[in-house]
């Protein structure tokens, strides 16, 4: 693991002047992931907030090669780049320096429309890392529900109405889906836990094969919290066990962070306007159900870690 002084000596992968909202966590995810690579990186991205805000022609915030083609294909697109690298290296058409291939996608581009492409790329065993910056909705198009949106959350397509209030379904556990692919490395983290993120990415870059990282990426606009609290949102997600930090190395689960005291899920929900309606008396049962679900999954994860 590198410390901040060491990371500060690395080339900045992303510069200022991009058009992400003030307080957006996605650029933090990108910076922390890419700075963990001591080797050159080549980046691919799904369409989404990150891609749009960092590449408004002729202004690119990327100091590393960056390739975007469409929304649902970051996995396939980066798998093609990695195949090109292998082929050209094998034929001596390029040097044999190690390059780390990284794909970034939001939850829309990863959990939903790009799920098949991700699954295919992982199954084919490309030497690449896919990083999902999960902000829990289609933020780029204006906060529509995705399969990553938590139960109860208000989005523009799961609004709070008179009859139906917020998203009715639990979120998809994508990290578990990726574990089921039995790839060498799967992890879940947040940018607030930069040491944890750095250690995971450094390890991932040190091994061959497909890697998947699910990184919680608070969106102050879609979640509705004061913009300076972005990292606090990550900490609350981890401390309530809504978003446990763990990794699965060759199928072996390991918790990388255990909260000193597991906080009630309300602590995570309360500061966010997308959950405000849940605190009405008639919706108390929803919070109770969300808590039950968090507890159930937390217990299961702890058990998995003992296997």
């Amino acid at each position: 693991m590198s410390n901040l002084k060491q990371l500060a000596t690395r080339q900045a992968p992303l510069c200022g002047g991009h058009r992400a909202c003030a307080g957006c966590s996605a650029p933090d995810v990108v910076r922390q992931v890419l700075m963990a690579s001591a080797d050159p990186v080549v980046v691919g991205s799904a369409t989404g907030c990150l891609e749009v805000s960092t590449t408004i022609f002729p202004y690119s915030a990327w100091n590393v090669p960056f390739v975007h083609s469409a929304f649902e294909n970051a996995g396939a697109s980066v798998s093609g780049m990695e195949a090109a690298y292998k082929s050209l290296k094998k034929q001596g058409k390029i040097g044999d320096e190690k390059i780390n291939f990284v794909a970034f996608g939001g939850d829309g581009g990863t959990y939903d429309i790009g799920f098949q492409s991700l699954s295919g790329a992982m199954e084919r065993g490309h030497n690449m890392m896919y990083v999902c910056y999960d902000n829990g909705a289609y933020m780029n198009t204006g906060i529509q529900r995705s399969s990553a949106t938590p139960r109860g959350a208000m989005t523009t397509t799961s609004p709070v109405g008179k009859v139906i209030q917020g998203k009715q379904q639990q979120r998809k556990d994508l990290t578990a889906c990726m574990v089921a692919h039995e790839i060498p490395y799967v992890a879940q983290t947040t940018p607030a836990h930069w040491r944890d993120l750095n250690a995971k990415v450094e390890y991932a870059f040190s091994i061959e094969g497909p890697k998947f990282m699910n990184v919680l990426a608070p969106c102050r606009l879609g979640w509705g919290y004061p913009m300076e609290l972005t990292m606090d949102m990550c900490r609350l997600a981890a401390d309530t066990c809504f978003w446990p930090l763990y990794e699965v190395v060759e199928g072996q689960y390991k918790l990388t962070y255990t909260p000193k005291e597991k906080k009630p899920v309300e602590d995570f929900l309360k500061p966010q306007t997308r959950f405000r309606h849940l605190f009405r008396p008639e919706n108390e049962h929803v919070i109770a159900e969300i808590q039950q679900e968090v507890d159930r999954k937390w217990e299961r994860l702890q058990k998995l870690c003992t296997l």
Binding site: V67, A76, S77, G80, A83
Partner: peptide, 9 residues
């Protein structure tokens, strides 16, 4: 998509 990625590379 993979073909595009490869050709871009």
């Amino acid at each position: 998509s993979a073909a595009i990625g490869a050709q871009v590379a």
